Simulated assay, not measured.
Amino acid sequence: MARQLGELEAVVMDRLWTWERPTTVREVLDDLIEDRKLAYTTVMTVMDNLHRKGVLSREPDGRAYRYSPVRTRADHTADLIASVLSTSDDRTAPLLRFVEQMDPDELARLRAALERLGAASEPPPGPRRRQR
């Protein structure tokens, strides 16, 4: 079950999900340093913690590591939503409240996705019987 990310963890993950490539601590730090004052060791600790928690994978690259998200942003978000819904006795009520807050474009995409899921779950048509 996914857990909510801390503030700096979320910022780091946002970069990695956006970049969609294995990334070093130095690259993340160089990007983040434009907006906030951070030490290399702070970013390294955050990324190492995310690795230990199973959120990031890593591969050696010289004396450093290159980190990659284990799951997509969409998968992580879906797990968070499922985690929140699991605390409710009635999962439908919060889902309906959420849908009521969606803008028309989001609602249209949701309808289309539900239609695709419905079509995918229908059994394929069987062979037709001959009429005598």
Rank of each mutant, 00 (worst) to 15 (best):
E9C: 09
A10H: 11
A10N: 11
V11Y: 00
V11S: 12
M13K: 12
R15M: 13
R15L: 15
R15Y: 06
L16Q: 07
W17E: 06
T18S: 13
W19C: 06
E20V: 14
R21D: 04
R21S: 11
P22T: 02
T24M: 05
V25F: 07
V28Y: 03
V28K: 10
L29T: 11
D31T: 15
L32Q: 10
I33M: 10
K37Y: 12
L38Y: 14
Y40Q: 12
Y40N: 09
Y40H: 14
T41C: 04
T42K: 12
T42W: 13
V43D: 09
M44E: 10
M44Y: 15
T45F: 09
V46H: 00
M47D: 04
D48P: 09
N49W: 04
L50E: 06
H51T: 03
H51E: 11
R52D: 02
R52H: 02
R52E: 08
R52S: 04
K53V: 02
K53E: 01
K53Q: 01
V55L: 00
V55D: 06
V55F: 05
L56E: 08
S57R: 00
S57K: 06
S57H: 10
R58T: 02
E59Q: 04
E59P: 06
E59D: 10
P60F: 09
P60M: 09
D61M: 03
D61Q: 11
R63N: 15
R63Y: 09
A64Y: 15
A64T: 08
A64G: 07
R66A: 08
R66F: 00
R66K: 09
Y67K: 10
S68A: 01
P69H: 03
V70W: 04
R71K: 13
R71T: 13
T72V: 04
T72N: 11
A74W: 07
A74P: 00
D75W: 01
D75M: 01
T77F: 04
A78M: 14
A78G: 04
A78W: 07
D79Y: 12
L80W: 03
I81H: 08
S83N: 07
V84M: 02
S86D: 14
S88P: 00
D89E: 07
D90I: 13
D90C: 08
D90K: 05
R91Y: 05
R91W: 10
A93W: 08
L95M: 15
L96K: 00
L96V: 14
L96M: 08
L96I: 12
F98W: 09
E100H: 00
Q101Y: 00
Q101C: 05
D103S: 11
D105P: 03
E106G: 02
L107S: 11
L107T: 01
R109E: 13
L110V: 14
L110E: 02
L110I: 04
L110K: 14
L110T: 05
R111I: 14
A112Q: 15
A112K: 15
A112I: 03
A112V: 12
A112R: 15
A113N: 07
A113P: 07
L114G: 14
E115N: 06
E115Q: 15
E115L: 09
L117H: 01
G118Q: 10
A120K: 13
A120T: 14
S121R: 12
E122V: 04
E122A: 12
E122F: 08
P123V: 10
P125K: 13
G126F: 12
R128D: 10
R128F: 03
R129M: 00
R130A: 07
Q131S: 06
